[in-house]
């Protein structure tokens, strides 16, 4: 597979503290990749190494098939978790400065900035100072600056923290549009539920190590545990619950019954749902049958617990 980014056994220590321990990732070109894990797991250190802000003690990063070089910064866009702008500088000047630092020429920077300012409907901010802008406004500017040089790889650290829902959706849409154009995107967050729907690939980081990585759909498949959510219209609920327990040899079922509607969760012994559905359809009208796919944070917790169990 064609990889935009490969990290090979990265290790980084800060004094006695180990931030990364032999961390390897392979990120397919054009994908959205989630680097997930709790605070302090080493996510930001990994991103800083990719951005050449810090150097790894051991290991190597390959960008676009080549070992990472200083000039690669012009092909990467990074929106750090700790982000801000010069407060007393005017928006126009500041964005021009940051764009030129990323290697754009003056005219190029100006044309592109004009385009994005129009697109976000903020053209009249050009001459204003950053300290006059609201937090949400400043975030739009930061986003524009991050993507302006049309990098091959975009990296967002805790992208949606601090955004109001409207801005968050706006940004999300823009990111997806960029993905359509072929940009590869990394999301890093400890709030796994915020990016789950967006990521095709994930790496779970915990205590400086990758505990799980790969294609999200494969991971979910592997962590599928035949849990289903059932809603059925029946005349007499409790009897059926006991019967199901007997027939499918299941220990206990949590259920509730409202106006003849019986709702319960069930974990089947195997993935064969046909006989169960046949059985249910004889008992009443099924109006809800959904597989309970584990969320990323469920998977994370389970993986961490498994690891602890092995130790």
């Amino acid at each position: 597979m064609d990889h935009i980014l490969v990290a090979d056994k990265l290790t980084k220590n800060f004094g006695d503290h180990q931030a990364l321990n032999h961390v390897s990732i392979q990120m397919p070109r054009g994908s959205i990749y989630g680097v997930l894990g709790p605070n302090g797991a080493g996510k930001t250190t990994l991103l800083r190494i990719i951005n050449q802000i810090t150097a790894p003690d051991q290991g190597q990063v390959f960008f676009d098939g080549q070992p990472l070089k200083p000039q690669h910064v012009t092909q990467i866009g990074y929106l750090p978790e700790e982000r801000g702008l010069y407060k007393s500088m005017k928006v126009g000047e500041q964005t021009m400065y940051l764009a030129q630092l990323k290697g754009l020429s003056k005219t190029e920077a100006k044309t592109r900035l004009k385009y994005w300012f129009e697109r976000f409907d903020i053209g009249d901010w050009w001459g204003r100072k950053v300290q006059e802008l609201s937090k949400g406004m400043a975030q739009k500017i930061q986003f524009i600056v991050t993507i302006l040089h049309e990098p091959k790889l975009l990296i967002f650290d805790e992208p949606f923290s601090g955004f109001d829902p409207i801005n968050a959706n706006l940004i999300k849409d823009e990111i997806l549009a960029l993905k359509e154009k072929g940009t590869s995107i990394i999301f890093s967050t400890h709030r796994m539920e915020t990016v789950e729907e967006l990521c095709e690939y994930i790496a779970l980081l915990n205590e400086a190590e990758i505990i799980l990585d790969g294609k999200l759909s494969d991971i979910k498949k592997a962590y599928k545990n035949n849990k289903f959510e059932v809603g059925i219209h029946v005349t007499e609920g409790e009897g059926i619950v006991t019967e199901i327990q007997d027939v499918f040899s299941i220990s206990s079922i949590h259920f509730n019954e409202i106006d003849g509607q019986l709702n319960f969760d069930i974990q089947l012994p195997d993935s064969d749902t046909r006989s169960f559905l046949n059985y249910l359809s004889e008992k009443g009208t099924i109006n809800n049958f959904v597989e309970r796919i584990p969320s990323t944070s469920d998977i994370f917790i389970q993986t961490v617990q498994n690891k602890l169990g092995h130790v």
Binding site: I53, V73, Y78, L79, P80, E82, G84, L101
Partner: peptide, 8 residues
Amino acid sequence: IIEVIISS
């Protein structure tokens, strides 16, 4: 802003 700058 520092981290934004030193990524460039």
